[in-house]
Computed example of a mutant assay.
Amino acid sequence: MRCITVTCFATQTSRNVAPSPAAVKQAIHWMLSLRERGNDPSLAQQCERWRNAAPEHELAWQRVMRLHQDLDLRAIPGAGVALQTLETSQRRLHRRQALKLLGGVALVGSASWLARDLQSVSAWASDYATATGERRSLRLPDGSLLQLNTRSAVDLAFTEQQRLVRLKQGELMLSCSETADPGRPLLVQSRDALVEGFAGRFVVRQDEDCTRVSVTAGKVAVHQPGGELQWIGNGQDWRVDASGARRLEQVAMDAAAWSEGLIVTRDMRLADFLTQVSRYRHGYLACDEDIADLRLSGVFRLEDPEQLLQLLPQTLPVQLRQRTRWWIRLERLS
């Protein structure tokens, strides 16, 4: 990709002005296009004209490129692999998917500049988002309380016809306002379903292969593709995917405990537990196959994932093998 000269106004405004999500999306689009098409003078000129069209465009470009350069220099553990994946994937993925992949790259590391300045590309491109290990609460315009778990992002679309929360990634808890507004349904849209909330509280989590819906108070209605409607009552946990919705009779983890800073497990597989803990920390975390099915039950605090991991050898026959603060693997105790 051809290097293009930085204009002066970006230096003057970059410290005090944040680019809009739309400008960031455009900058990422230009970066992916230039990387895909290589040395294309015509495309480079078009990109330069876009950058010169507004100070905000140049600011968005510089911040996206700074993210790319820092990753390319491997300032963040695992960045090289993530960038290689981005290089090979962008040629066959839709631009929207490539944007999500780049957002994932931003979550890999723990360098201070990332947490302080960028957090993630998803945060730029969403109305509200959380970084790794962060939880956030906010009051919606209708009085409902929205809580976001780690690595989560949502967009809001409140109109005269509906109150819509789009879950783009991660997990949310929504406590519906007791003030009913039947003319404007309160909806949470995930990749797999549309969840309609009433007076009560529920959790929606978007996994790679499904959406999980858990109701802790009241009830919700799940609208699935094809017009099917499924009611979910208090205390129920459901899985929704392309094949439909089904109730989960046994759940190994309290779906709402994260809102209080906890992981509460009931006879949970060690490998599944580590997958959940890894959502709250940077870097690599896994275990050997011969201990993956070990079970644990308990209440674990999320405020310090590293200290949490140190507790595991006290309750299970395992030991931690740690290469760096970002790379931890559990092995059977020898």
Score class of each variant (00 low, 15 high):
T5A: 15
T7F: 11
T7Q: 15
A10W: 05
T13S: 14
S14T: 13
A18T: 02
P19T: 03
S20G: 10
V24C: 08
K25W: 12
H29A: 15
D40F: 06
A44H: 10
E58P: 04
L59N: 10
W61E: 08
R66F: 09
L67F: 09
D70S: 14
D72G: 15
L73D: 14
A75Q: 13
A75M: 12
A75N: 12
I76M: 14
P77M: 05
G80H: 13
E87H: 11
S89D: 09
R92E: 14
Q97W: 12
Q97I: 03
L99A: 13
A106K: 01
S112D: 13
A115L: 00
D117K: 11
L118D: 05
Q119N: 14
Q119I: 15
S122A: 15
A123W: 09
W124G: 10
T130H: 05
R135S: 15
S137W: 06
L138K: 07
L140E: 00
L146D: 01
T150I: 08
R151T: 06
S152E: 03
L156Y: 10
A157W: 02
A157H: 11
F158G: 03
F158I: 00
Q161Y: 14
L167A: 05
Q169N: 00
Q169Y: 04
C176E: 02
S177Q: 11
T179N: 13
A180C: 12
R184Q: 02
S190E: 01
V195S: 09
A199V: 03
E208H: 14
C210P: 00
V213P: 07
H223W: 05
Q224N: 06
I232E: 05
I232T: 07
G233H: 01
V240N: 03
S243H: 14
G244C: 05
G244Y: 01
E249P: 06
M253V: 11
D254P: 09
A256R: 05
V264T: 03
T265L: 03
D267G: 01
A271V: 12
F273E: 08
Q276M: 02
Y280P: 08
L285G: 07
D290Y: 10
R295T: 07
G298Q: 03
V299L: 13
R301Q: 09
E303G: 08
L309R: 04
L309F: 05
Q314C: 13
Q314A: 14
R321T: 12
W327P: 01
